[in-house]
């Protein structure tokens, strides 16, 4: 009986999560549809909001991402220097690409964006809901999905992709500083190591993780913000939920992509 209750509870939670996921997909679809249908209306206003979103999410996050990326690059390269006793200096390039480009870059960028912009967006939209700004937009014939959701989603996605690329660039720079200090490696040799380690698969992984991660962070934040009914006292709770749900989604999604990626490699190489 206990076992059945447990299965029942897990099933319900799974169904709730699926329902939530499909609600978000519906919101994404409707926001794109509303924007395409409203092409004659306020595209200039929408682009204004989009560029502001890129500024707040992307440009303003650069100092924090720089520090994190530099530290990550240095630490991974230091580990590589230790391991290079076993495999030679060339391991540093592979290590940096595998850790930074494939895994840590997208994950840490997503966490920074969730912490800075996901929370800000969920609380902003929650307060807008409580202050009847969403209703005010509707009363003026402005669809909140094209005016609020679409520019934030697109601006957020562009920011995540650019920030992640920036993170990788700075990390590799940090890695070079350590490699130069420890092994006196020249910049050309270091770049050769990195470029030899990069493959198309790294680009696919980068794009898949950052694109889906970016979209989901902002979709979850918008969805949570819109879930406020009346009172500003609901805002802190929905903001916390936005953070928790975004982190869970990004971690589960990134891990699943990595597992599937290696599973595919093992499958094609005949190891499975």
């Amino acid at each position: 009986m206990t076992g059945l209750t447990f299965i029942d509870s897990v099933g319900r939670k799974l169904l709730d999560q699926l329902q939530y996921f499909f609600q978000m997909l519906l919101m994404l679809y409707l926001s794109v549809r509303a924007t395409l249908k409203n092409q004659s209306h306020g595209l200039r206003t929408i682009f204004g909001i989009l560029s502001l979103q890129i500024f707040y999410t992307g440009v303003n996050a650069l100092p924090l991402v720089t520090v994190l990326a530099m530290a990550t690059g240095c630490v991974v390269a230091l580990q590589g220097v230790q391991l290079s006793i076993l495999g030679g200096v060339s391991m540093i390039g592979q290590l940096l690409v595998v850790f930074v480009v494939r895994e840590v870059g997208p994950l840490l960028t997503a966490l920074v964006v969730i912490a800075r912009s996901g929370t800000a967006m969920a609380s902003e939209l929650g307060n807008m809901r409580a202050n009847r700004e969403i209703e005010a937009l509707e009363s003026m014939g402005i669809n909140p999905l094209s005016f609020i959701v679409f520019p934030r989603l697109v601006g957020g996605l562009i920011s995540v992709l650019c920030l992640s690329l920036y993170f990788i660039f700075i990390s590799l720079l940090g890695g070079f500083l350590v490699a130069k200090f420890a092994h006196d490696i020249s910049f050309n040799y270091y770049m050769t190591l990195i470029l030899n380690s990069l493959t198309f698969n790294d680009a696919y992984l980068f794009l898949i993780k950052n694109t889906f991660g970016g979209v989901m962070i902002f979709a979850i934040s918008c969805q949570q913000g819109f879930s406020v009914r009346k009172s500003p006292t609901e805002v802190p709770a929905v903001t916390t939920q936005a953070v928790v749900k975004s982190i869970l989604f990004v971690v589960v999604f990134n891990s699943s992509v990595t597992v599937l990626f290696y599973f595919k490699d093992y499958l094609f190489s005949g190891l499975l």
Partner: peptide, 30 residues
């Protein structure tokens, strides 16, 4: 667009100035 609705409380877009709020319906619908 043939209706104008005004709230008893709230309803102004918080991150826009008062004049931007006022102009919003005209600008958005061109």
């Amino acid at each position: 667009l043939q209706m104008g609705y005004s709230f008893d409380l709230g309803g102004l877009i918080h991150n826009r100035s008062l004049i931007e709020n006022l102009k919003l319906p005209l600008n958005y619908h061109k």
